[in-house]
Design a binder for these strands. Sequence first.
DNA 1: AAAATTTGTCTACAGTCGTATACTTATGTC
DNA 2: GACATAAGTATACGACTGTAGACAAATTTT
Lengths: 189, 189
Amino acid sequence: MKKHPPRDAAATRAAILASARRAFAAKGYDGAGVREIAAGAGVTAMLVNRYFGSKEKLFAEVCAATMDAPVILADANLSSAARARDMARALVGLTGPGAAPLDGFRIMLNSAGSKAAAGIGRRAIEKRYQPLLAGALGGVHAGERAALVFALVAGVQAMRQTMGLKALADADPQVLETLLTPLFEKLLG
Amino acid sequence: MKKHPPRDAAATRAAILASARRAFAAKGYDGAGVREIAAGAGVTAMLVNRYFGSKEKLFAEVCAATMDAPVILADANLSSAARARDMARALVGLTGPGAAPLDGFRIMLNSAGSKAAAGIGRRAIEKRYQPLLAGALGGVHAGERAALVFALVAGVQAMRQTMGLKALADADPQVLETLLTPLFEKLLG
DNA sequence: AAAATTTGTCTACAGTCGTATACTTATGTC
DNA sequence: GACATAAGTATACGACTGTAGACAAATTTT
């Protein structure tokens, strides 16, 4: 039995990845610095580049890892029509006060300014989220409808969290849920 | 009659403002540099600070100026139910290929990463767009519904333009229009 | 024509960015 | 215990950032 060593490469790598995810979600690709990410993992900046090669590759890996678990869509079996309300409720809850872990879109939104980051994120979405939801939806124009679901989710999140628009941030969750449900119904149906 | 001098303060100021608007829309607050903005106006970086005090104040002025003319909402008299289709068509057209001048939201989206920029943009929206649309909408929860319209517009724009999601960017405009119209109907009605 | 003021540029500074090279320290093996 | 290798740090470099201060040129006023 070998006891857990204080120098664990896998653990350190995971810590860097987690810190990067937090930092990118909070400040975007440009705003988050390598030194800051490293400090969040308790290591030096250079170690980040030793593990991931470059900041850009680190970002790509964060994107891929973040989108491995589609939070909103995972528990939503989209067959029933009542799922629209589930999605609305989930979206309102996950973008409400208390910094929910809807990291995927948040990273994208905050990193949209950087061309490189936007391209990486787009490819990650198209490879994971997009086929998953489009397949679950079925019917005509499933791809477009899935993408519009993303747009709606991203927009609500952008206005509520990143932008902090008062009319949405301070709104009654029940009201938002009621307003959003028919929108999802139209897109899912 | 004094002929137009080559040294026109007002014209230079306007040129800087226009260049800044372009740069911020393309690369966001952090991504656009003062030197780059100045070069786009044919002047030196220092002149920017002489006219606007700082990059942050320049950004605030760009936000205010950009949102003076609400492009989508201006020509849409929201009384009729058919206006939903108008808005859908306008949104699809303005976010399609050919880099439409829907700068307001694009600046916001690309600058969302910077906390300072996000705050400035939020205040600008809340002072201009928000009351205008909420007032035009009327009815119950007008504020929330107006904000959700913003969210939908911003989301579509983010996914189509900034992110470049293929399913939306390459989609048939007619299809998008058909899909978006009922969403706007729900929000406007 | 001379003085004053506006309009604009040049140079420079402190700071941060991502990252490459060289080095130190801890681990695993013979 | 000695050696090879993995894990991590220290220093530094060039390029960029926003901005301050001193200076040049053009315009307007007297």
